[in-house]
Amino acid sequence: MDPRIREHAEIIANHSVDLEEGDNVIIDAHPVAEDLVVALHEVIGDRGANPITTSQRTGKRQQRAYLRASDEEFETPDHELALVENTDVYIAIRATDNMTQTSDVDPETQAAHQQAHRPILEERLSKRWCLTQYPAPANAQLAEMSTEGYERFVWDAVNKDWDAQREHQENMVEIMDPAEEIRIKSGDTTDVTMSIDGNPTLNDHGEHNLPGGEVFTAPQPDSVEGEVLFDMPLYHQGREITDVYLEFEGGEVIDHSAAKNEDVLTEVLNTDDGARRLGELGIGMNRDIDQFTYNMLFDEKMGDTVHMAVGRAYDDTVGEGNDANDSAVHVDMIVDMSEDSFIEVDGEVVQRNGTFRFEDGFEE
């Protein structure tokens, strides 16, 4: 087995989920990620924990068959919920043999299915959990990379010194955590402000998401004003959505468009009331993620970017007494901040053209 796979498994166990003896562990993975699943079983066995492997979240072929055969009436599956309730650790491994497997499933059906599984999502998030990536050939193809090149890219971003990354990102946490307002400006297409007053800024250094490489917080749901053009594409429900444009007033999306698959974007925004408000603002800071790969787990951490998510706010990013945006969805979208762009915190520019105030080369 490639030693980088074993190192990946060790980082998940030691750094991301703090695996303990006796833990009940769910590994949710597509069969194409078998090598990482096997390595995790070795580590779990060494620790005296108890693994079970499923493909509920990541097995897209059977999910497609089920959703195409179903109507739009779904109930929360109690047996799946019970499985998560009786576990201590949940590890999801992204990998697939076909990135567009669910592209011919109706977006409304997918949204209804996601809504029914919301209690399961909430239960998973209450556990020690990690979402990571295995470098499968289909993911390499989507990234327009060779399989070998994509393997290097993934493991360079994952198998790294996370203590050093945490220290680097802490500089931005110290700027944002006490702040009241943030403005994001990029070219003539993005100019948006939001209040983060009283909401903690978190340092993602590879614990829940692996790779990590961002600092993030939750906007006050009613505070977002302005417009954003997300100039990097995203894949959602097996479809590529490009040039997403959102206009906010009083925190709510009042106008939207997309150059491609606008109907998928519309279904996301129509999922529930919270889907039309922002649940997250994140700043990408992982310099080892140096190219766009159509994989949000990596792309949102890329240096010289910011991302915003419509939908659910993470509980840890909402301060005591503040409103938390609630939704069945959480969909991230990215803005390139490498040129003609700045981030302003309480009236002070803290990043210009991708360079932070605390880095060499920052221009006042």
Score class of each variant (00 low, 15 high):
residue 202 L to C: 02
residue 203 N to V: 08
residue 204 D to W: 03
residue 205 H to G: 02
residue 207 E to L: 13
residue 207 E to M: 11
residue 207 E to T: 15
residue 209 N to G: 04
residue 209 N to R: 09
residue 210 L to G: 05
residue 211 P to I: 09
residue 211 P to S: 10
residue 212 G to Q: 07
residue 212 G to E: 00
residue 213 G to W: 05
residue 214 E to S: 10
residue 215 V to R: 01
residue 215 V to Y: 06
residue 216 F to S: 03
residue 217 T to V: 14
residue 217 T to Y: 08
residue 218 A to N: 06
residue 218 A to H: 11
residue 218 A to S: 15
residue 220 Q to V: 13
residue 220 Q to D: 14
residue 221 P to D: 01
residue 221 P to Q: 01
residue 222 D to Y: 12
residue 224 V to I: 13
residue 225 E to P: 03
residue 226 G to F: 04
residue 226 G to M: 05
residue 226 G to L: 05
residue 227 E to K: 15
residue 229 L to W: 01
residue 229 L to H: 13
residue 229 L to G: 11
residue 229 L to K: 11
residue 230 F to M: 03
residue 230 F to K: 00
residue 231 D to Y: 09
residue 231 D to S: 09
residue 232 M to R: 10
residue 233 P to L: 12
residue 235 Y to S: 14
residue 235 Y to L: 14
residue 235 Y to Q: 14
residue 236 H to G: 03
residue 236 H to Y: 15
residue 237 Q to A: 14
residue 237 Q to Y: 12
residue 237 Q to T: 09
residue 237 Q to V: 09
residue 238 G to I: 11
residue 238 G to E: 07
residue 238 G to K: 12
residue 240 E to A: 12
residue 240 E to V: 14
residue 240 E to M: 14
residue 241 I to T: 09
residue 241 I to G: 04
residue 241 I to A: 05
residue 241 I to W: 05
residue 242 T to Y: 05
residue 243 D to W: 05
residue 244 V to N: 02
residue 244 V to D: 00
residue 245 Y to F: 14
residue 245 Y to S: 10
residue 246 L to V: 02
residue 247 E to M: 02
residue 248 F to A: 01
residue 249 E to A: 14
residue 249 E to G: 12
residue 250 G to R: 08
residue 250 G to A: 07
residue 251 G to P: 01
residue 252 E to F: 04
residue 253 V to G: 00
residue 253 V to A: 10
residue 254 I to A: 06
residue 254 I to P: 00
residue 254 I to Y: 08
residue 254 I to N: 13
residue 255 D to M: 11
residue 255 D to E: 14
residue 255 D to F: 08
residue 256 H to N: 08
residue 256 H to D: 00
residue 257 S to P: 02
residue 257 S to G: 13
residue 257 S to I: 08
residue 258 A to F: 02
residue 258 A to W: 05
residue 259 A to W: 02
residue 259 A to C: 06
residue 260 K to V: 15
residue 260 K to S: 15
residue 260 K to D: 12
residue 260 K to M: 14
residue 261 N to D: 08
residue 261 N to V: 09
residue 261 N to Y: 08
residue 261 N to A: 02
residue 261 N to I: 09
residue 263 D to E: 14
residue 263 D to M: 10
residue 263 D to L: 08
residue 264 V to H: 09
residue 264 V to D: 04
residue 265 L to P: 00
residue 266 T to L: 10
residue 266 T to A: 15
residue 266 T to K: 13
residue 266 T to C: 07
residue 267 E to D: 12
residue 268 V to M: 07
residue 268 V to F: 00
residue 268 V to K: 01
residue 269 L to D: 01
residue 270 N to R: 13
residue 270 N to K: 10
